[in-house]
């Protein structure tokens, strides 16, 4: 049995990769993808924790995370479509109207 800490470590690794991708890429699609990677990592951490103590709660939590991810993706992609319509590009560097 893989030790619990290793499982969490893997989840952390995945989270970190997702984070790096979020910070590095300018393309909105890639940023959303990175967010998905991060959420997936988090969800896996939940599942691993649930399995550690043989409780089903972890998987229930996983379900909720999944739900949230789905909802978020739906709205985010709608926004992405809007952005594409407005700016003709999905480069987030164009979204700087909040500049002082």
């Amino acid at each position: 049995m893989i030790p619990y800490e290793i499982q969490i470590l893997v989840a952390a690794f995945l989270f970190a990769i997702g984070l790096i991708g979020l910070l590095t890429r300018r393309n909105l699609i890639f940023m959303l993808m990175s967010v998905e990677i991060m959420m997936n990592a988090g969800a896996f951490a939940f599942v691993a924790s649930g399995a550690r103590w043989t409780q089903a709660d972890g998987q229930v939590m996983f379900l909720f995370v999944l739900t949230v991810a789905a909802a978020e993706v739906a709205v985010a992609l709608a926004l992405l479509i809007l952005m594409h319509k407005h700016f003709k590009t999905v480069d987030t560097n164009q979204l700087n109207s909040l500049k002082n």
């Binding site: 979020l22 910070l23 590095t24 300018r26 940023m31 987030t92 560097n93 979204l95 700087n96 109207s97 909040l98 500049k99 002082n100």
Partner: peptide, 11 residues
Amino acid sequence: MSINGQINWYL
């Protein structure tokens, strides 16, 4: 200057 409107910077 930190309010530059760049999303990456905020993240």
